[in-house]
Computed example of a mutant assay.
Amino acid sequence: MTVLGAIALPQLPPERLRGLVEDADAAGLEELWLWEDCFLTGGVATASAALAWSRRLRVGVGLLPVPLRNVALTAMELATLHRLFPGRAIIGVGHGVQDWMGQVGVRVPSPMTLLREHVTALRSLLGGERVTVDGRFVHLDGVALDWPPPSPAPILIGASGPKTLRLAGEIGDGTILTAGTTPEQVRAAREVIGDGRLVVYLHTATGPDADERVEGERVRWGYPSAVDRAATGDAAAIAEQVRRWAEAGADTVVLQPTPDDPDPEGFVRFAAREVRPLL
């Protein structure tokens, strides 16, 4: 069965996150996804708070940009989340937006090499191993976590281009595809990554101005058309669209509201109470 999630965009002021999380949890939303976007909110801080404010909600972070993070620190933080909230944290990592990485002085000449080294070391650390590595970008000397997760901690990788998709299929436990990915592109990605979990974000808007807001997203992201890149309408119309992405190979479809959605809290309730029962 397809998992349905929703995104709490980082444009939401942090002080409003608790109310949205509590609404999502009470409404029965399966997964709430958060972003670590420069220069808005931190992924681990918001995920930890969201997990603490909820009882059953699974919380995803899609994604942590690896250039920003020393792999030992990433492992420490993720191990802590997995021990505090077993089975409820879903963490993705990726290249990050290269312009942003340049702004903070961490852009690297080979993002693919960094991602491979980071994920490989991260997996070993989360697995309780003592790690020594002297890579091009990742350097560890006998590092081991005192409190590794008691069970395997899946690592998802954000990907779009063919090289990163292949890497995600090779070393990741799943792949996150950005909003704007068409069903046909989902099918192509599934062929590359194989059997790992496939998460796709889907631009979504409901209400009387839904088409207008999605058109704003189309312009913002430079899509030639919103067809096959977004879902609009009432719950039945959006559920029908979600099924198309699921049939193309997505295990999880995460509804992504527009940044100007007038009611972010209402959006997560709508996803859980009106769209989910139709899938």
Results as ranks from 00 to 15, higher is better:
residue 74 T to S: 12
residue 44 V to N: 06
residue 126 L to C: 04
residue 55 R to M: 00
residue 94 G to E: 02
residue 81 L to F: 01
residue 118 H to T: 15
residue 46 T to P: 00
residue 68 L to A: 05
residue 91 I to H: 07
residue 131 V to K: 09
residue 60 G to E: 07
residue 142 G to L: 11
residue 113 T to R: 15
residue 104 V to E: 06
residue 95 H to Y: 06
residue 122 L to G: 12
residue 137 F to A: 08
residue 51 L to I: 13
residue 145 L to T: 07
residue 122 L to F: 13
residue 127 G to R: 07
residue 78 L to F: 08
residue 100 W to A: 12
residue 74 T to I: 05
residue 66 V to R: 04
residue 97 V to R: 01
residue 62 G to P: 00
residue 37 D to P: 00
residue 122 L to M: 10
residue 113 T to D: 04
residue 132 T to N: 09
residue 81 L to M: 03
residue 53 W to P: 12
residue 89 A to V: 08
residue 55 R to A: 12
residue 122 L to Q: 10
residue 87 G to S: 14
residue 77 E to P: 01
residue 120 T to E: 15
residue 143 V to M: 09
residue 50 A to E: 11
residue 38 C to K: 05
residue 103 Q to G: 04
residue 63 L to R: 02
residue 121 A to Q: 05
residue 136 R to K: 14
residue 75 A to R: 03
residue 133 V to I: 12
residue 128 G to V: 10
residue 71 V to E: 01
residue 109 P to C: 09
residue 55 R to V: 00
residue 78 L to N: 02
residue 58 R to T: 12
residue 37 D to H: 15
residue 127 G to F: 10
residue 49 A to L: 15
residue 132 T to L: 04
residue 37 D to I: 08
residue 62 G to F: 12
residue 122 L to S: 14
residue 126 L to S: 03
residue 103 Q to T: 15
residue 78 L to E: 03
residue 62 G to I: 09
residue 58 R to Q: 13
residue 112 M to F: 06
residue 110 S to W: 01
residue 64 L to K: 03
residue 98 Q to V: 07
residue 96 G to S: 00
residue 62 G to K: 02
residue 92 G to P: 01
residue 120 T to D: 13
residue 98 Q to H: 07
residue 140 L to A: 07
residue 114 L to K: 10
residue 62 G to S: 15
residue 67 P to L: 05
residue 35 W to E: 14
residue 146 D to F: 06
residue 104 V to D: 05
residue 98 Q to M: 10
residue 129 E to H: 13
residue 81 L to G: 02
residue 81 L to P: 01
residue 93 V to M: 00
residue 87 G to Y: 04
residue 54 S to M: 08
residue 97 V to C: 02
residue 84 L to P: 05
residue 102 G to W: 05
residue 91 I to G: 00
residue 125 L to W: 08
residue 121 A to T: 13
residue 62 G to H: 10
residue 117 E to F: 08
residue 73 L to H: 06
residue 64 L to E: 05
residue 94 G to F: 04
residue 33 W to F: 06
residue 145 L to G: 09
